[in-house]
Design a protein around this nucleic acid. Structure first.
Length: 458
RNA sequence: GGCGCGAUAGCAAAGCGGUUAUGCACCGGAUUGCAAAUCCGUGUAGGUGGGUUCGACUCCCGCUCGCGCCUCCA
């Protein structure tokens, strides 16, 4: 029985899909004006896991992750670069796809781009206007009136009065209430715009997600996810727009993943303390990064440092080492009657407790090492596969060198191992040890066994 | 100022009102020509002050500290 922590009610709830056997899920994706950073990696991986586990549980999943390809930053960045908005967004969408693929993130069922859904946004704004929730402001913008939507603040747990007390935004005289937000921005010189009943303009950020989600998943769907920072105001505003327009409940379960931190501080573009995914992947294996993310619970903060990634790499090495000596089919099936699988499922069903699920993998690895049982090794690989881990040949992982310069090549290593084997055969241990310590200095660890010598990168 | 989250061993990170979390690191042993890997074993916890309880890391209250949201943000 799957339980999900619902940000709306602030407790773990049994997951009951609207349509039995089916799940409709929407996650706020990227605004594509720059490379994805580690924070983006976390959303990608976290909701990839959600999606995978729902499918593994036998549910039919429709997963939508949008792309925001029109907004102030995109316009500004394109102008700075002297390229068109289309060129800029196409470039960074390609980069995002590469990063996601490297991290083993499966493609969502739909990846709608905001600019393809402007007609749906206009219809939504029209309905909000008809329902008395939207008004035309002086500057030609169309705004949403938060005061006229009962229950505004229910997701973020804020009341309009509390919010106003801490108001930090410059008062915009065109707004009836400082917390009102823009649905349609009137066109400015030199910016892209679309025709609308309210004049030429472009959509506000929040309306994009309401339009894309209802178009692809319907007015009422099961799960909506995103980073914690989107809870307010973005998701709060989505609720106001969608429920205000459709007159029905919007989302049943709200999921928010925790932040990635650097030195105990939120990683964000505005703070400038971010690491891009591709930057990290130059130095660390992508699977190590994925494992690093999954070793923490998705709602906890995740502190980034090289030391933590090194730790993750050593831990993952233990799992691959357990698989190394045994014949394991690539597409192993989980044996759900086996005890570790039951523990694994219980962990995942408890609000996607991947750290606990990983602990089960380590227990299973110890069992594999003790028993040298091929079926158990298959089980280990199959369970890890549900997390998108251990999908490679153990040698590929253990001997991988993530693009470090001056690495000793596999050929050289193999040749030295052969030399050392010869030295050992004539019981010249001084020479054998000399070769071994030479390789160790070059970051290569040798392991002798009954079947000969194998090697891995330190 | 308002609202919320958290504090677990050297580092990272879970569950749980009483019984080994897990990984890395560390220590002892087995194994090895010596190592590495692996196995066996030991140790190192629960911010602080109270309360509830036969019993609390786990529940409740206070305090301290940290983090986040209240502006674009995953």
């Amino acid at each position: 029985m799957l339980k999900i922590y619902n940000s709306l009610t602030r407790d773990k709830q049994e997951f009951v899909p609207i349509v039995p056997g089916e799940v409709r899920m929407y996650v706020c994706g990227m605004t594509v004006y720059d490379y994805c950073h580690l924070g983006h990696a976390r959303v990608l991986v976290v909701f990839d896991i959600v999606q995978r586990w729902l499918r593994a549980s036998g549910l039919k999943v429709c997963y939508v992750r949008n792309i925001t390809d029109i907004d102030d930053k995109i316009i500004r960045r394109a102008a700075e670069n002297g390229e068109t908005i289309g060129e800029l967004t196409a470039r960074f969408i390609r980069c995002m796809d590469e990063d996601a693929a490297a991290l083993g993130v499966a493609r969502p069922d739909h990846e709608p781009r905001a600019t393809d859904y402007v007609p749906q946004m206009l219809r939504l704004i029209r309905r909000l206007e008809e329902n008395g929730l939207a008004y035309r402001a002086a500057a030609g913008d169309v705004n949403f009136s938060v005061r006229r939507f009962p229950g505004y603040g229910k997701l973020s747990g804020k009341s309009l009065d509390d919010l106003r007390a801490g108001e930090r935004v410059d008062i915009d005289s065109a707004k009836e209430d400082p917390l009102d937000f823009v649905l349609w921005k009137s066109a400015r010189e030199g910016e892209p715009s679309w025709a609308s009943p309210w004049g030429d303009g472009r959509p506000g950020w929040h309306i994009e997600c309401s339009a894309m989600s209802s178009e692809l998943l319907g007015a009422h769907f099961d799960i909506h996810g995103g980073g914690q920072d989107l809870q307010f105001p973005h998701h709060e505003n989505e609720i106001a727009q969608s429920e205000g327009a459709h007159g029905c409940r919007f989302v049943n379960y709200w999921m928010h993943n925790g932040f990635v931190r650097v030195d105990e501080e939120k990683m964000s573009k505005s703070l400038g303390n971010f690491f891009t995914i591709r930057e990290i992947l130059r130095r660390y294996d992508a699977e190590v990064l994925r494992f690093f993310i999954l070793r923490a619970h998705y709602r906890s903060p995740l502190n980034y440092s090289d030391a933590h990634l090194d730790d993750a790499r050593h831990a993952l090495t233990r799992l691959y080492t357990a698989l190394k000596a045994l014949p394991v089919a690539a597409a192993a099936e989980v044996d759900w009657s086996e005890p570790h699988a039951a523990r694994f499922a219980a962990a995942m069903n408890d609000d996607f407790n991947t750290p606990e699920a990983c602990a089960v993998l380590f227990d299973l690895a110890a069992e594999v090492n003790r028993s040298q049982s091929a079926p158990l090794a298959c089980q280990l690989r199959a369970l890890a596969g549900l997390l998108g881990l251990l999908g490679r040949e153990p040698q590929d992982f253990l001997q991988a060198s993530p693009a470090r310069d001056g690495e000793t090549t596999a050929e050289t290593i193999e040749a030295l191992i052969a030399e050392r084997a010869a030295a050992k055969k004539r019981r010249d241990f001084t020479e054998a040890d000399r070769i071994r310590s030479g390789l160790l200095a070059a970051g290569v660890i040798l392991e002798d066994s009954a079947n000969g010598t194998s090697w891995r990168r330190a």
